[in-house]
Design a protein around this nucleic acid. Sequence first.
DNA 1: TTGCTCCTCACGTCACGTGAGGTGGC
DNA 2: TTGCTCCTCACGTCACGTGAGGTGGC
Lengths: 190, 190
Amino acid sequence: MLTISRLARRFGLSRSTLLYYDSIGLLRPSGRSEAGYRIYSPQDAARMEQIDLYRKAGLTLADIARVLSADRGTLAAVLETRLRGLGAQIQALRRQQQVLVDLLRGKNARRRARSLDKQGWVAILRASGLSEDDMRRWHVEFEASAPEAHQDFLESLGISADEVSRIRRWSQQRPKPRPIRRTSPGRPNR
Amino acid sequence: MLTISRLARRFGLSRSTLLYYDSIGLLRPSGRSEAGYRIYSPQDAARMEQIDLYRKAGLTLADIARVLSADRGTLAAVLETRLRGLGAQIQALRRQQQVLVDLLRGKNARRRARSLDKQGWVAILRASGLSEDDMRRWHVEFEASAPEAHQDFLESLGISADEVSRIRRWSQQRPKPRPIRRTSPGRPNR
DNA sequence: TTGCTCCTCACGTCACGTGAGGTGGC
DNA sequence: TTGCTCCTCACGTCACGTGAGGTGGC
């Protein structure tokens, strides 16, 4: 049994946040003391735990209320929508970063981009010694060990959604044992 | 000379946005028609151009008002503060991404991270055939051709600010011609 | 006369923060 | 009695969006 400020402290929230959650019906204390104090039960605290989790995923309070009183299907749908929204938000902030960097140096010259594009990245990999085959292996390895990170990375290079899926499909094929060279069946060249 | 909706359309804004800018004094039309219509002069449009630019950098309207009536020093300071804030915002959104991914699969297992860390990245590069020397060349190349992107990239791997600067300093040294091997002064080995 | 654009309030939004004015518990 | 925590309004925030009710211009 907890009073409002104690529960707030437990989650690093303010008292007024919990007052607000009560007012919108997201988290109602299950009782009141004689003097009218809100009293939160362990079950209330457990609900608060859930709320806290979804807050950390950036859901709106309305969505949190929905997923707390719905089936798993709804939950997954809400989370996936949020995940897509986050991608868009992050991209928007990166564009703002670009504008700021342009303003701060170049002054509007835009000579060097802060973020690399596909060409720039390929150039760096090539300059550090990777062959086409090595790059293929690199994609395959990336896709196998961290598919989501691979997706994020490709997006960060400004590659279109279509091309991203093409690249990822291409990366999912078994890594070819070695470049096929009919003339030399012996040990791999290198 | 433009009416309010014409000016709005020119910048892809709504009429109510410009009404709001007038009400807070950010962009006052320099005249009114006989019927009381707001009339925006070319100078007003030029001011709007500035506002639009800073909006694209994500400045608050209060900050935009400040930089429009201040010296360059203030401008740079405001922009730099915003740039730092953006970094923090993007990191916060990435944390939300992480929470969502954990919720959606693993369910709370957290086996595969969505974002790679340093170890994961090194593992992928190594698996695709890069030696230690190659990786060094890769950093040097990255630093030389796109220093800001290098910084962003290292931060995205969750590397501490301290280590990021160490790595970047280390990447600024002239690329050693080749691994030093006193015994073989002839052509590079490979 | 008919659309179209314009005008001025005024209220809603999202997730709280900040008082103001007052009461209960150790 | 003194602090501390609690209570209930009510208003402010940020950058607009959305009516309501009314007028001017071709």
